[in-house]
Each structure stands twice: as structure tokens, then as C-alpha cells.
Design a protein around this nucleic acid. Structure first.
Lengths: 242, 242
DNA sequence: CTCTGTGAAGTTGTTCACAGCC
DNA sequence: GGCTGTGAACAACTTCACAGAG
């Protein structure tokens, strides 16, 4: 689930000239991209900020402002060219260069991720998976070979690993993080629901199912109970998040 | 994953007297809770905001401010009582009342979630799963019975479902959302990477693996390459998010 | 002296509203 | 007339710094 604590904007300023993009904007960019893929499939060539915003559950001003951080790709009086904007977003996010990904911990969740097609479609390449279970080592899951985690450094050799996804038991997570960081992994996507220390300078995010459920649980308390029958103008106000 | 777009604070004001909690704070609370569980296991009875902050990758001022939104549970000059604070956080998040959860779409990811123990430990009860595949209907996954989604309303009957987790193919997602909302589901945790329209008043969050990877991909561009050998004071500055 | 709770200051993010261009 | 891009106004969030309590 997502940069959860520390959603703010410390450091992380690209070395280019352009000022750092706000963290909040960064977190919305993938959703704009998703919306654009969807619009492209429907055959749209040109779209307005209002259309994009509707799919993302935002508003047009926010959308324009966000997109303006990555450059001026719209045309006044007209809108945004869909393929062009997709290309620019991909470039900005750095997903044009086939990022190398590994996964550590081929359990239930790990396997589900390896079998998930969506990642590979989006410019990420899962080059290897690791586990310590002899039953799993040597097999393939979703086309990805499973290696012995104890030979991690040996297996990755000189390949620069961009992202490591961690789906190991909580008790092992810190050891795994320490080791892969030492081995030169550049960033981490953590699925383990336990506090972790990650060295400064290694971007990392955590996806936590329980946290998501807890947040919804809180929001339920404040949501007005919907009156059966009388669903007041449920005109499905588009909204891609709570 | 996670309230991704629209991270802001619209509506959602609890009907109690206390002012609405900031959205950002809400998103950190589950991580404080996680840290506290961990501290409790280690046998801590009293902890300081600094200790909690370290595990969460935040700072003590932020932690104190956040916790102050839910009440005054610390003791000046002393710290916070761990079990007490856990209890208050759980109460605040509304996870003391065993939330009823269903899952729709028993594919790879859906199965992985059903088999995941963590959710049930944390006060959530997965009461049913749904699919349309006759092979799956009638089976059990992780102790949860799988029913025919076409009989959704019939199966849930009068039970109030607090949260529906959606792990169906993108092409089906909107239909599923429309139907379960109509059937009275109160909130949604979406894993489908496609734009969705959800009626206003239904809290919902999205967990999106590709979005997480894309964000990391961007952060990699700005991260300083670490010089081999000379790892400048990698004193593992605790930090629970990028 | 230690550690919480919190106004006030400082910072970051969002929305408005309009100039500029089609 | 429609729609982008953007300063300026506004709102939200974070950090500071200190009073208050043990």
C-alpha cells in the first residue's frame, strides 16, 4: 500500500534543473497514467483536464497543476494529446527504461505477484525470485526462476537491481532488507507488515493490507448510513479514492 | 494502493464533537499501531513518542501531534502506556467491533489474500468470498467459503458488510462495484488497476502495485547513486516510507 | 531533568480566477 | 466559446518551541 507514513517531501529533488515535484503530485501521476491508458483504449485522441480528473476522482485544476509540473504538454483551447501525454508521463516516471525487479519470499502473496501480468506490461521486468525453501528453489513461478536467497549476491552478480519486492515472514524482513541493500539493491517495495529500518537514500514504500482496512474501518464510523430505498442522487460521482 | 488520488480532507467528518482528524494523520495511525504491537511484543510497558517515531520513520513532534488528535493518553515526563495506547488506537479506528469483510474474485491475488492470516488477527472477519467460476464455487479457500457472485444479495442476506475487497479482472470491476454498492456494502478496498466510479458516501481505497512501482521508479532517478564501498554513514535512519 | 500536549510559526499543497491561445 | 497554464489567495499540514506535569 503506498508511502504511508512520511508522505511529505523530504529530499528527493531530481538533479535536473526543474524544481522538485510535490510528493502528493507524484503519487497521483500513476493514476493519471492509468486513466490515460483507459482513454486511449476507448479511442480518445485528445482529452481535457476535466475528463482526466473525472476518471481519477479529482478536479480539473488539480489535474492541470499536477501535469504542469512535468511540462507543458497541453494545447490551450484544445486539450491534451493522449499518446503524447502518456509518453511524457512514462518518461517522467522513468518507466521507459525497463526497470529490473526481484522478489524475495515466494509464499502465497509472492507467488500471486509473480503470476500477475500487469507489472510486466508496464515496463517492469521481474528478473529473479528468491526463497530459502528447498522445495521452491529451482522451480519457476509465472516464468520467473526461483533461486536460493542465500546465494543472492552470487545470482544477481553485476546486474543493477532497481527494485526489490519483499514478501517474506515478518521475522525475516529486517535481515533481508539489510542484506539486499548491502548487495546494492536501489529501492524497496515492502509488503511485510512490520516496522523496518531502511538506510537513508534507499527509496522505499510499504503496502499494508491491514492498514488499508483500518483506515476504511475508521471512515465507516463517519460515513453517513445510507437510507435503504432513498439513495440520494447516487450519480456515482467519480472518485478514485476514499 | 491506498487513497491515492484525493488524499485530502473532503467531508468525512465524524459525527462526534471532536473536529475531523487530518487525512494525513489517519493514514499514519495504522503504522503507529503496528509499531506499538511490535513494542508490546518486545515487552515495553511505557514508550516515548521518540521511540514510536523511530519505528515509523517519523519524528517525535509529528507523533505527539498525531496521537493528540485521538486524545490525551500520554503522561508528561513519562511517556505512553503501550497497552493503553493500543487499545485507544483500536477503538479510534473502529477495529474493536469485528468488521465484516467479503472478497470478490478468487483468482491468484484473491486467494493469496484469503490465505493471509494477518487480516483476521487484526479484528477483521472474512465472512464470504465470491466468484463466477463454477470450479471455484462451493470450495473453501483459507477457511472462507466461495459462493456464486450471481447470488451475492441472496448470500449476504441481511448481514451488513463493512468492507468488500475487489480482486476481479479489470473488465468486470465496474459492474461488480455497482452491484455490491446497490446491495448495501459500506466500503470498498479495490485492487483492480482501472479507473472506477464509486458513489459518493462509500469510502474506498485502491491498492495498486503498478502505481507503487512507478513511484519508486521516479524516485530512483533522483536518488543519488551510492558509491560502492563508501556508504556514507548508513546509520539506517529509521523510515517507514520512501 | 524528562517527556507530553499544543499554540504559533513556517512550509507545503489546493483551489481560484484569469490571461493567453486555439 | 473552450481549454490550458499559472500566479495569487487560501487551506492543510508539519515543525518549532515552550508551558505544564511528573
Amino acid at each position: 500500500m503506498s508511502d504511508n507514513a512520511r508522505e511529505n517531501n523530504k529530499g528527493a529533488m531530481p538533479r535536473g534543473k526543474r524544481a522538485a515535484i510535490p510528493r502528493t503530485t507524484l503519487q497521483r501521476l500513476p493514476f493519471y497514467l492509468r486513466a490515460l491508458y483507459s482513454l486511449e483504449e476507448e479511442g480518445w485522441e485528445i482529452v481535457s483536464s476535466t475528463q482526466i480528473a473525472e476518471l481519477v476522482g479529482s478536479n480539473s485544476a488539480q489535474t492541470r497543476k499536477d501535469l504542469s509540473f512535468i511540462g507543458e504538454f497541453g494545447q490551450r483551447g484544445v486539450g491534451y494529446n493522449v499518446p503524447k501525454l502518456i509518453q511524457e508521463l512514462e518518461k517522467f516516471l522513468g518507466v521507459t527504461r525497463k526497470r529490473k525487479v526481484v522478489l524475495i519470499g515466494v509464499g502465497r502473496l509472492g507467488s500471486a505477484i509473480l503470476l500477475y501480468k500487469g507489472i510486466r506490461q508496464r515496463g517492469f521486468e521481474i528478473v529473479a525470485a528468491f526463497d530459502v525453501d528447498p522445495e521452491k528453489i529451482g522451480t519457476e513461478v509465472g516464468g520467473v526462476p526461483v533461486y536460493d536467497f542465500n546465494k543472492f549476491e552470487e545470482v544477481i552478480g553485476n546486474e543493477k537491481i532497481d527494485i526489490a519486492m519483499i514478501t517474506v515472514p515478518a521475522s525475516e524482513a529486517q535481515k533481508v532488507v539489510d542484506r539486499i541493500v548491502q548487495a546494492g539493491v536501489r529501492s524497496i517495495l515492502n509488503f511485510v507488515p512490520t516496522p523496518l529500518k531502511v538506510p537513508k537514500g534507499i527509496p522505499h514504500r510499504t503496502v499494508c493490507l491491514s492498514a488499508e482496512l483500518q483506515i476504511l474501518s475508521y471512515l465507516l464510523k463517519s460515513a453517513k448510513p445510507r437510507i435503504a430505498g432513498r439513495r440520494r442522487r447516487d450519480r456515482a460521482v467519480a472518485s478514485e479514492r476514499s
